[in-house]
């Protein structure tokens, strides 16, 4: 199947990141937000992240223009009826995702395939709302999508072989190595990373070491590119907390229970890089590093 126009629902961090990769692969994107102002804001955020990548020499000015030219931000879902394929990237909340599926199901031709980007939720439950459960599949992309080489592909109980083949084809076009996973809370990557992030937060909360030192130790000790706390900041602490809550609820194991420090920070609006403050401080996309020798 030829994918020429891809519809997207949701212009948040993941939505924009997926849109950037899809557009740079030569596919036109129509990205739907709930309102004109939200659509405009999402576009501005995409411009800012492309400017950051340009500053880091990751893309050229003409590549930036090509990407922006290929992504159209619209208010409302109506225009997605013409897309060859639709990906939703709305909040990690079953009811919200089911509502999107219900509306897409009513709007799009019956043969159209829907992809849900979730790291934890049940594809079967999400798919049920669409009225075409055989044509819904999960693709869990990792942030930042243009650089992350993998995607988890999750089949719901009724997902057809043809739908699975389409997801594999999209993964190929986007140059992602597909990891096939069974429907089970958290799949592979979210489930494995959550206890690690949680533990790092407990270490800080219990006063064993500063956030700075916890990240430094784990980065240098295990050759991670980012420490767990900076990673959580980049994902968004509210998102990380929603992963934990979901896994805790589904699996009941205390290792997934969100660290109280995380809850406190989310309540205070310290959501990580996107709010300028999480475990560390940020100015735009750049982390503000402590002055050398100040420690």
């Amino acid at each position: 199947m030829e994918i020429r126009t891809l519809g997207m629902v949701g212009g948040g961090v993941m939505g924009r990141s997926i849109a950037e990769k899809v557009a740079s692969s030569g596919i036109a994107v129509v990205l739907a937000e709930v309102s004109e102002p939200r659509a405009r804001a999402a576009r501005e955020e995409l411009v800012a992240s492309l400017d950051h990548e340009l500053e880091k020499w990751g893309i050229t000015l003409s590549e930036k223009k090509v990407i922006l030219n290929r992504v159209r931000f619209v208010a409302g879902l109506e225009e997605l009826a013409q897309a060859d394929l639709v990906i939703e990237t709305v909040n990690e909340d079953l009811e919200v995702k089911q509502d999107v599926m219900r509306r897409l199901g009513a709007l799009c031709p019956p043969d159209r395939i829907f992809i849900t980007n979730t790291g934890t939720l049940s594809i079967t439950e999400i798919a049920a709302a669409s009225g075409r459960p055989d044509r819904v599949i999960g693709m869990h992309f990792l942030h930042p999508v243009p650089r992350s080489p993998i995607v988890e592909i999750v089949r719901g109980v009724e997902t057809s072989e043809q739908t699975y083949a389409t997801a594999l084809e999209l993964a190929r076009v986007l140059e992602k190595t597909p990891i096939g996973v069974s429907e089970y809370p958290g799949y592979v990557v979210t489930r494995a990373i959550v206890p690690f992030l949680n533990e790092a937060m407990y270490i800080v909360m219990e006063g064993v070491a500063s956030a700075e030192d916890v990240d430094l130790a784990l980065r240098l000790g295990f050759e991670f590119k980012l420490g767990p706390l900076e990673f959580a900041d980049r994902v968004g602490l509210d998102t990380v907390m929603s992963w934990m809550e979901h896994l805790f609820r589904e699996l009941g194991d205390v290792k997934y229970r969100p660290c109280p420090l995380l809850r406190k920070m989310v309540r205070a609006g310290h959501l990580g890089r996107k709010s300028g403050r999480g475990f560390f401080l940020y100015r735009g996309y750049e982390r503000i590093r402590p002055v050398e020798g100040a420690r």
Binding site: E53, K56, W57, G58, I59, T60, R147
Partner: peptide, 16 residues
Amino acid sequence: KEDLSEHQATTLLNKH
């Protein structure tokens, strides 16, 4: 020094 990924470094040398 510039906190670059492999991709960013490659693009730096080839396109910038």
